[in-house]
Design a protein around this nucleic acid. Sequence first.
RNA 1: GGGCCGUUAGCUCAGUCGGUAGAGCAACUGGCUUUUAACCAGUGGGUCGGUGGUUCGAGUCCACCACGGCUCACCA
Length: 524
Amino acid sequence: MLTQDNDQIQQRHRHLDEIIQLGHAAYPHRFDRTHTISSIVMQYQSYHGKREDEGEAARVNEELKGAGNGKIRLAGRIMQMRLMGKAAFAHLSDGGARLQIYVRKNDVGEAAWELYNKLDLGDWIGVEGFLFVTKTGEVSLHIHELQFLAKGLLPMPDKYHGVADKELRYRQRYVDLIASGAVQERAEGELTAREVFVKRAQIVRAIRDFFDERGYIEVETPMLTPLATGAAARPFVTHHNALDIPLYARIAPELYLKRLIVGGFERVYELNRNFRNEGLSIRHNPEFTMLEFYQAYADFNDLMDLTEELITGLVDEVCGSRQIPYQEHTLDFSNWQRLTMREAVLKYWPDHLQDKKPSLDDLMNRAALEAAAAALELGFDPKLNDGYLLGEIFAHVAEPHLINPTFITEFPTELSPLSKQNANDPRFVDRFELFIAQMEIANAFSELNDPAEQKRRFEEQMRQREGGDDEAMVMDEDYIRALSYGMPPTAGEGIGIDRLVMLLTNQRSIRDVILFPHMRPEAK
RNA sequence: GGGCCGUUAGCUCAGUCGGUAGAGCAACUGGCUUUUAACCAGUGGGUCGGUGGUUCGAGUCCACCACGGCUCACCA
């Protein structure tokens, strides 16, 4: 780890002491910049490499010298230093871009030169100077003023390779972010940690714009709740001292948002964290970001159209192409599929078991479902009801094939305690899940707004709970009361934002799209 | 929770068959006023994740533990 006391850390403390002795503040309060490094790099990109002959060099440098009246003031962290006797080059970073500075003893003066020699990689400095292009063609700042801004007391990661240790990258994300701009070779199109999180911010911004433009209002509902319900999951429990009651970190905002529809908000969305007390994996973090939105007078078919529009728009905006790489796949966002769960089972039924392939009707028949599970050599709990069994068969047969965006519809009622039943066939609900790259990205349905039926569904969930399923939903009496005041026909949807960001940034692990993923406590 | 892999200098990594712990970067000393993974010469830096065991001798073999990665199961 980077925090052990060693010769390098002692040396940096000595340098800081010496800087103070030279009369500089150890931690000065501010620095006036005229530009950011990123803006200079962007603006003068085209000058890069312009130095084929001396004549052109002189002309280019004469032009650059006037930029910003020759008094461009920049600040950043020192990423590389190359000392050459009485002159030096260094690269400064503002986190996003790097610019080379050129320091010459004659130009900065004795005092600043002395300061420069007490600087270490990772220190923050402010500089003033004029732009020029070096012999080797790099746009650089020839400085005549140097100000110390803050010390890096711990040694920087390898300037070329950066940080490879994933544990260190997740636990000390700040180090990952510092080093992710390192020169290290990356595969074509591979993003740095910083770029991933910048894209994540763009995606979240674009989602909010999308819903704001369509007349939704963004709301915030409780994160600490007396009941953990609205999803099938185990909650985190905490305790409220003043009230002396248990509180649960929410597992979903769903029931609160629908109360708002009852209250007369026709379109609401919430984009925030849910908490589920479950294991960690490449696709699961105990807290994750969920978008939920509800729209009165709409049904789940409307939301399929809306979802397609939302995600296609995001892909266009963030990726610039509808065919995007994701790990070993190419995802085609111009090719959306809609299948019922049973159709998907038939479509992806394994070739070598064609003789045992069930029919569409079979998949609603207990004996045939069990035969199908047996043919697939699927172990299953005989207590599972028909709906669960179909869900298991679907997950096994079809899910691995769902690479391009696919809406799966016609979910068994037993699997969907908050969804409205299909008008023609009450064994199924009007619900879909969206799968992309084998991941479940979205879940939506026409909302059950019959309070009596909702009460029956909760009671069924409670029976399953008593039967040992500690993820079955908890009864929410106040929600029944709210529905009893009348909720208009409504459709609602949840979209897992972390997973969507994974897709759009080609990240394999959810930990790579969460700044501070959950980790076991560090070993002491 | 199960299986597989990993943990060596501040960072990135070698370390053969069990026989005195290695490189590059970073640091230190000296040189160098357009370098760029700067360069040249020299120097220091290690509880080899931890604890036991086998052995004359363990970074290396064995057991257990910790942390991480991948994977299976569960889940969004």
